[in-house]
Design a protein around this nucleic acid. Structure first.
Lengths: 120, 120
DNA sequence: GCTTGACATGGAGTGAACTCCAGATGATAT
DNA sequence: ATATCATCTGGAGTTCACTCCATGTCAAGC
């Protein structure tokens, strides 16, 4: 798959795909004989995974660390799992925060008025 | 209340409080005779509200607009409500996205393994 | 052989949201 | 009076995560 195809398929710009690869957020992608990227299915699975995790707010830095550990193999399994659990907790906390603020906002909207009422 | 007290109470730095006020994200705060900020209860309610909304990811820009409309009075009620509803929808979408990614992450963790399995 | 188009690289630029800093001022403690 | 402290202002600096750009290469069509 070319970078244009991957870009279209996953909704990430070519620049972003190259950037992700450059900083180590995606494992290195194969090149064809003219030096252009040729994404394998394995590559695109990473793209999809990274896109999903970034979409949920996991930092580029954390994902770089995850990818780096993944590439070191089995010896990093525990550390990778720990990283995932940590991120999972942050994500759960975020969901809780958003959910509670959403409820507050719904209440505010239902009252069709502002939290801070003009004191007349 | 002094800026130091507000900062402590709401967990926002003094710089952030001044920044918020400067860009119009908080209505102007009263000053005492020596020119220092003296937050009223009304002021701190705004601080709390803004902190909460920012915490849920509503942009500074959108909140500035909301505050500006609020200060224009009743004539902006409809527009303010529309803004809130719009933000509510974005927030709900975000909760859905996070919830689904959280489920995926939980599954991944439960498998104690990676989505992309080494092909052996 | 030449143009066209996709892709490459390295590096600079961008936008959002703070965060930090220098220099000034006023109130308070010694 | 002097030193200390909190606060003030305007403006510059920082971080994150891209995004854009200039320049160069390669393969294919005319």
């Amino acid at each position: 798959m070319t970078i244009a195809e991957v870009s279209r398929q996953y909704g990430l710009s070519q620049d972003t795909l190259r950037y992700y690869e450059r900083v180590g957020l995606l494992p290195a992608v194969n090149r064809n004989k003219s030096g252009n990227r040729d994404y394998t299915e394995d590559n695109t699975r990473w793209v999809e995974f990274i896109k999903c995790m970034r979409g949920a707010g996991i930092s580029v830095e954390a994902l770089i660390e995850y990818v780096a550990m993944y590439q070191k193999g089995e010896s990093t399994r525990q550390a990778r799992l720990a990283l995932l659990k940590e991120q999972r907790e942050a994500m759960a906390a975020r969901v809780a925060e958003l959910t509670s603020t959403l409820a507050r906002l719904d209440k505010k909207i239902a009252m069709y008025d502002d939290v801070i009422l003009p004191k007349k």
